[in-house]
Design a protein around this nucleic acid. Structure first.
Lengths: 194, 194, 194, 194
DNA sequence: AATGAATGAGCTTTCATTCAT
DNA sequence: GATGAATGAAAGCTCATTCAT
């Protein structure tokens, strides 16, 4: 039943989507939508929540704890891009929508935090394995950058229907891991002469 | 006068923003807004255009052609994060809004393409300097990832008013450049055993 | 429910009539008006159509094909003036409004054409009965004049609530038929000495 | 200066005409329009008045008191149709407009009354010349019918730019005068068997 | 004397939301 | 329990009308 809502929100965007169309698409009457899922905002949050959960589960399932750090990252990225590839409409637009509609910024922020935390843990483990450490803020920002780069490529993937999710994941891995690997080794770039 | 519009669009989002509120915020009457800037859509495009131009100029001004590749990237990133830090509203309108509102996706896409192209050129120059080359698609995707990571950190910066733009730029540089440097040297990560 | 619309359009004119007033007058809420009858223009066309159809039917019903030509004309005129007398509002909408509002001129023109054609056929039959004939343009203009005279008297009737429709019809018949009868006999007036 | 107003009212209709366009067309600024001619309604009345006066004058000038009754009618009709032919826009639309806009109904009614009275006088003179008389109401209605038929043909003329005013006048004369002549002779049509 | 700039008020239209059946 | 019917509220946009220069 949420499927209809996701479809319509994806197709039209949050504001342009009308409860009429959602009810129609779901094959039930409008009052039922209100009875089961409440306000339009609540409905959107519900969509967001479900899609977010599914994504998280898909990734969590893929990241086996016994893998090496780069193996974990790779598995996670691949799962992520596969999910986006399979739910181009749902994910891409839900995400893009949520980012733009102030009222949902918090819901989204929370989701992103969770992803950032997961990535952060991976990085921390990798660091520990190398016997090195890094400031928490740096870790967070780095994780942010990786998540952001992934989101951006996810957008790119959603806009290029013919693109291959796995290949996209490989590319992201190259950008991410090689950079990260350097950092993990202690190589640090800093502005020269300042 | 566009300032008010940028503020309100950023605060509310495109749809939720009402022309009444924009007029109020600007301290003029609604008909004046229409007289000077036309339709709500045209108004938004005008905001988009101005903010985009400002951002581009800020970056272009910073990137001196006689710098080394990493010097260019660093200058560009620093200018970018400084701009975002100083124009949080503008950034909100530019990216968070425009990305989600179908009608403006094109305007935004064009701008992003320009940035991606600029970054791509930098990378290509660096490659040439090393005597190496890379497939165009890979270049594009890589540039996309860098731009995306920057956008994401920009969001982070916009949400953390106390954060320092220059420090954020440095962090981004670390993620970006070290990773890129590896790639430029020919190191390629690929899924093992698949 | 169209009744309210006809009343208000007749009272205010197309432009000056507000959907609010129509909804009020109908005792329902504005969105209902839109749900049932669509746009203001569509609503007006609907009014036009209904009133026009009613008028045509009233006349068609009255004009029995087995009557003599003057009997037909008389029956038609009587039906016409009775209708106008009974539906003063409707008449107002039909003619006074539609004639002036460019977008509806066509709808009206079509109806008037139908009336002109009917009158033209009557005249032609009468001519044939007398073994005479007349140029088509003359016929059309004559029919036009008769229809116009009738419309004018209809206006007069609509403005004089105490006037008797049948008497008005008789008067119109006198003007119309005696003049026509002359013409049919071949008497033609022409400017002397020119 | 009224010319511009007449042009614009003709082109657009009363409501659709904007004061901006009128001022533009007149080559002066809007406040001047208000200074010289007042409200939009007042402006329209002024147009109506001027056009009406011109029409009346054109007719009055043509109707010499020493003519025979049919000579007077003919001269009047010819002047009328010539005027309409020469001012197709102005007259046709002003008239059609005024008829539809409630607020101006009175102004228009007054003008029409004047014409009816003039025609009535002609008919009464003709009657007197024949030594016959007729009830006042009948006279009025007859005059109304003639005026109405003329208006209708004027509309027709305004819509057929290639039509010849004098020919139209002749046709109207045929319809009008032959019918009237009969009536003047005492021939009266009345519903048979009722 | 003439105008550019400004606005209050109003109109059509659309929805999220709820009764009454 | 489910719905067709209904509405309050608001939004975009326009225009007759007037100041302040």
């Amino acid at each position: 039943m949420l499927d209809a809502a996701v479809r319509v929100f994806s197709r039209r965007g949050f504001h342009a989507a009308s409860m009429d169309e959602i009810a129609d698409d779901a094959g039930i009457s409008k009052p039922m939508v209100y009875a089961y899922l409440g306000t339009k905002e609540e409905l959107f949050v519900a969509c967001l929540h479900r899609e977010g959960t599914r994504l998280m589960e898909a990734i969590a399932e893929a990241v086996a704890p016994d893998l090496t750090p780069d193996g974990q990252l790779w598995s996670g990225l691949r799962a992520f891009f596969r999910f986006v590839g399979a739910h181009r409409d749902g994910w891409g637009v839900l995400y893009r929508q949520a980012r733009a509609q102030q009222p949902f910024a918090d819901n989204l922020a929370e989701m992103r935090e969770r992803m950032v935390r997961v990535v952060g843990v991976m990085l921390a483990q990798a660091l520990a394995a190398e016997g090195r450490e890094i400031r928490d803020t740096d870790l967070e920002v780095m994780a942010y950058a990786l998540v952001g780069a992934s989101e951006s490529l996810a957008d790119w993937l959603a806009d290029h229907p013919e693109a291959d999710p796995d290949k996209t994941a490989t590319r992201m891995m190259n950008v991410a891991w090689l950079g990260a690997a350097q950092l993990l080794r202690g190589d640090v770039w800093h502005p020269s002469g300042e």
